[in-house]
């Protein structure tokens, strides 16, 4: 999966990413937190205990009151890729999980090569496996090994998984969720929960054509890929159309929700190559805004 060709594509993406993100790497990324950088942000009245070094004496000379100058703190970007490893990801004419791993690897690689620290969390219903924060291209092989070792299984429970992630990663940053979002009722609460932690979130909705437009017809026993539960159904063309509409409605609902909550969203069709997808995401700028 992560062969030479894959690496070549990653290099290409990295070059393209550098052009797109030129001048905005590292120190250009401003933290929302106030700190000790040189970029002024605001004033506030002095309070007991404040560092006197930050008192604006010019203001004191004119107003005879103590005001502190506040500066925006500059920090490195914390990029986290949350990779869905539920059993449903093992579906599709092109394996969604393989595809998702490639996308995750590409995003992490770009982050790491730009001297940000990147991490990949693979989440399932009960477990969250973390690659650990890495920076620099030298850690790429480790990342690949981590991703290669992942084995999907279990159900999708986004909120539960995100809660575990928050528990482990308190630092704010950019969170890229790569998932098929097969938690129809739980996807929005989960994203809302993640957003509430002030992360910048980007959702990559991995979708395969075979699940968006399933070639099912007739009397079938449908087996759930995650739980193994089954149901006997007679798939009519009408029912199949309903399903297609429902699937599309679900995706559009998530997209609309993301737009409302200022969450980046990209539909990742497996028949679109991962590098093309990542490039599109980068060009759209959502991931690094």
């Amino acid at each position: 999966m992560f062969d030479v060709e894959f690496l070549r594509k990653l290099e290409y993406l990295d070059v393209v990413a550098r052009k797109i993100l030129a001048g905005r790497i590292r120190a250009d990324r401003l933290s929302s937190r106030r700190g000790t950088s040189v970029e002024f942000e605001d004033f506030r009245q002095y309070a007991v205990g404040d560092d006197l070094r930050y008192v604006d004496w010019n203001v004191f000379g004119r107003l005879e009151e103590f005001f502190l100058k506040l500066y925006r703190e500059e920090e490195n970007l914390h990029l986290t890729v949350l990779l869905d490893q539920s059993a449903s990801m093992r579906f599709g004419t092109i394996d969604k999980f393989d595809y998702a791993r490639q996308v995750a690897a590409a995003i992490a690689y770009i982050g790491m090569s730009n001297l940000d620290d990147a991490n990949v969390h693979a989440f399932g219903p009960d477990v969250v496996k973390s690659m650990g924060r890495m920076r620099g291209k030298g850690k790429v092989r480790q990342m690949f090994d981590f991703l290669t070792a992942l084995e999907p299984g279990g159900e999708t429970d986004l909120k539960r998984s995100f809660r575990r992630f928050i528990g482990e990663e308190r630092r704010r940053g950019v969170v890229v969720v790569v998932s098929d979002l097969y938690d129809v009722d739980g996807v929005m609460p989960a994203l809302r929960y993640l957003k509430s932690r002030r992360h910048e979130i980007y959702v990559v909705h991995v979708t395969d054509r075979s699940e968006a437009e399933p070639a099912l017809r007739g009397d079938l026993r449908l087996v759930d890929g995650e739980t193994g539960a089954w149901r006997d159904l007679t798939i009519t063309d009408a029912l199949r159309k309903k399903y297609v509409d429902a699937f599309e409605s679900h995706a559009r609902g998530v997209e609309q929700f993301c737009r409302q909550k200022e969450i980046g969203y990209a539909r990742a069709w497996t028949h679109v190559t991962f590098d093309e997808l990542v490039l599109r995401i980068l060009k759209r700028g959502g991931l690094v805004a």
Binding site: G92, D180, E211, R221, D224, G225, E226, T227, R231, F247
Partner: peptide, 13 residues
């Protein structure tokens, strides 16, 4: 009936 595995049965249901 033929068995067909779907990624997410609840949507059908």
């Amino acid at each position: 009936r033929h068995r067909r595995t779907v990624p997410y049965l609840r949507l059908w249901e």
